[in-house]
Each structure stands twice: as C-alpha cells, then as structure tokens.
Write a protein that binds this DNA or RNA. Structure first.
Ligand code: FES
Ligand code: FES
Lengths: 154, 154
DNA sequence: CAATAACCGAGTAATATAGTTGGTTATTGA
DNA sequence: TCAATAACCAACTATATTACTCGGTTATTG
C-alpha cells in the first residue's frame, strides 16, 4: 500500500483542483503555490493520474488540468492507486508465495487488511473531501485568520 | 503507518513464537530457519519488541524469547507499532501543521484512516492468527527434530 | 570452560521517495 | 509572427528507509 507523502500530495492537490476548477482549467503552478508542493513533482504525479484517466490537461495560456469525472465519482482510492501503485499490502501480491514459494504465516492478515483499506478509501469521494475543506478554504481566501474550528479531534 | 516487510516479518515471527513457546523459550535461530528471515534482522526487531514490553529474552543454552502476555492479549497493532513506529499516517503527526504551519487539505482523511487502521489491527490478536495458521503448523509440531518442509535448503 | 543465545553498535547495499534540471511540444493573444 | 504560457517528458540527484551484515559483549548452562 505504501501510504506516504506521495499519496498525500496527490490527494491534497486533487482537492485543490476540485476547489478551483470552477474557473476553468487549473494550473499546476497555482496548486504548487497554494499547497507548497514542488512543481516538477506535481507534474510527475499528474502525469500518472492523467494516464489513469482521472484528469485531462490542456496546454498553453489559460490551460491547466480539469477532472474527467464528477468530483463525486472519483474516489480517494482512485487517486492513491494512480500515483502510489498498489493498494495491496501483501508482499506476495496475492500469489501466496512470499515465504520460499509458500504462503507465509501472516498472509491472511495482510490480505484482509488490504481489503479494509481499499474499502475505506474507495468509499470516500473527492467531492466529500472538497466540501469538508471548503469552509477552511473560503476563509483563507478572504483573509487568513487562524482557524481553530477544525476540531474533529474532539 | 508505513506497512512494509518489516511489520510483516515481525508479525510472522511472533506467530511462529506463539506456536512454539509451549516447549519453553524460542530461539531466534529457529524462527530464522523456519521463516527464512535473517537472524540479525530478527534480533533488531525483537530488541524493539522487548523494549515495548511484548516479550522477554533469556540468554544462554535453553534460552530464547517468550511472550510477556497471553496470545489473546497481544494485538497486531502492538507488534506493528513496536517495530514500525507510528500507526498514525498523518504527515504532521497530529499537529495539523504539515502545510506551511497550517492544516493541509487532506489532514482529516489521513487522520480518520489512521483510526480505521489502528482499530482493525488492534482488534486482531496474536492468538487468533496463531489458531488460524495452526493447521499448517501442527504437523510440523509432532516432529520435534529438523523440519524438512520448511528447510531453506529443501 | 566452552557452547549457546541474547544483546549491542556500527556499518553497507538496495530501493524508494522527493525533488531538480533542462528540455519539447502545443496553444494563446498581442 | 512571435513571445509568453503551461503541459509534457526524460533523466538525473539527493535523501531516507529498509533490509541486511559484521564483529563483537554479555549472561547462562552443563
Ligand atoms: S504475504 Fe502473501 S504469502 Fe506472505
Ligand atoms: S497531514 Fe496533518 S496537516 Fe497535513
């Protein structure tokens, strides 16, 4: 599964794209500036997502990226899989042979965990995340006041 | 979270330990041979688990490792956390500051996913996994001498 | 006292991530 | 026509982590 900054960057960038695509294509430059992610690194991530069919790019002035599907029809799993490759955390990739050609003692566990993980991420759409962070976003847009209201930790 | 071979090794090794501790302490040498994991690497993993209080080691002939708690009171989360460090996959480690001092757009997602992940792994005990893989193992158990089926040389 | 086996620190090799550099297309609009 | 824009692309580097090795030192047993 390999849940790392890469996947986080991709999801964060896609949320940014969702929030801004109302005005037409969104440039990587703007995402880079908004989210503090290296432009070239974004290019690599977006290349993968484009190849996965999640987004389309248009060149030239006024160009940028747009989502190919509705925000509610793109899941977080789609994004993570696109940039991070597998969402299967078994070492054997399902072949049940990671220990000297045989199934290792913990295969069943990782297999089940992979399913759980996928189920969770596939069940959340970009749209949901976008709307959640919308509030935060709008405020920052108007004036950057500290936002202490995000207490889902409570 | 960083679910990698390291965590898999640790869990696999702990299942092996569970299955064999009936006869007293289990040596890393035997686990190394059974599971095909480097002895020195096992030592490093077991050092961490010892420091986490999951196991105890006794030196000298007849020595080895034993579990400090009942197999049903050790969760997979305990093991993974012990060797793999965090089960929190947020970049900010809960501080909500990973993007330029502020909470990034996807923080909520990773936070929730961490909880799910932890919940799942904390809900599975070593005992359950041990009993699941028990069938495979019992045959080998009856034969105390060399285990040809798992031998590296075959 | 010699074999065993945990314990320890420092190293190395391979791999992956994160990011850089230096381009080339394609599109726009001045 | 031309310059600016922005996607697109390949290859490279730097860093971190994983997985593993090496060379020991304790402690315990018979
Ligand atoms: S993870 Fe599938 S056999 Fe070990
Ligand atoms: S993951 Fe917590 S602020 Fe980004």
């Amino acid at each position: 599964m390999r849940l790392t900054t890469k996947g986080r960057y991709a999801v964060t960038a896609m949320i940014d794209l969702s929030l801004n695509q109302g005005h037409g294509p969104v440039t990587l430059r703007s995402i880079s500036q908004n989210q503090g992610i290296s432009l070239s690194y974004l290019e690599q991530l977006f290349a993968k997502m484009r190849k996965s069919g999640l987004i389309s790019g248009t060149r030239g002035p006024g160009g940028g990226y747009i989502l190919n599907r509705d925000v509610d029809r793109i899941s977080i799993a789609d994004i993570v899989v696109a940039v991070d490759e597998p969402l299967d955390i078994t070492e054997c990739a399902g072949r049940e042979d990671c220990q000297d050609g045989r199934r290792c003692l913990s295969h069943g566990l990782w297999s089940e965990l992979s399913d759980q993980l996928y189920g969770f991420l596939a069940g959340i759409s970009l749209g949901e995340l976008m709307r959640q962070s919308g509030l935060t976003r709008i405020r920052e847009e108007s004036r950057q006041v500290e936002v202490p209201s995000l207490a889902d930790t409570a």
